[in-house]
Amino acid sequence: MAYDKFTVLKSTAVPMPIENVDTDQIIPARFLKATSRVDFDKNLFRDWRYNNDDSPKADFVLNNPIYSGKILVGGRNFGSGSSREHAAWAIYDYGFRCVVSSFFADIFKGNALNIGILPVQVSEDFLHKIFTAIEADPKTELEIDLPAQTITILATGEQESFAINGYKKNNMINGYDDIDYLQSMKAEIAAFADKSLY
């Protein structure tokens, strides 16, 4: 599925200073029953966001109108647990294009990159600075510069570099995807698979 190209993103951010945000929280299993990619955003953080009677929980950050933006900032070990890509879809379809954390679970990180969400891993110290800046002013903007691989807190000018491999970076900037790449080398794959023991 095509996704928005990513170069430089300047946006306010939604803070979620909770560790180990697992994919069952991002989207509970009972909302994985669709056979197409529709409406997952409605159930993003479902059980943290809504009461049992579907009324919004006032103390949850997505229900607090002072926070908004295309960047979600989470605590350490974001996206742990289940491999469900639905978690990444829910985040993307809600409107986020970037998740910032001090540590990502592997499968979530891969899923995010495959659908056009940039996972930006920062130091624990820098993450703390972001949370502090947003707490002081919810309108604080962050700038994520993918070509330069930097993240900046615009109000203070504090900046950190982040890592991403060259292949994925190029994909994100141009909106390319792995499926097209693999199709381009199908003959090579078939020849390799022919020699496989299995």
Binding site: A88, I107, N111, N114, I115, I179
Partner: peptide, 14 residues
């Protein structure tokens, strides 16, 4: 474990 985009990759290219 893999995500659904990767399921599509395996189906189409192994």
């Amino acid at each position: 474990g893999i995500g659904t985009s990767e399921v599509e990759m395996v189906l189409s290219s192994q």
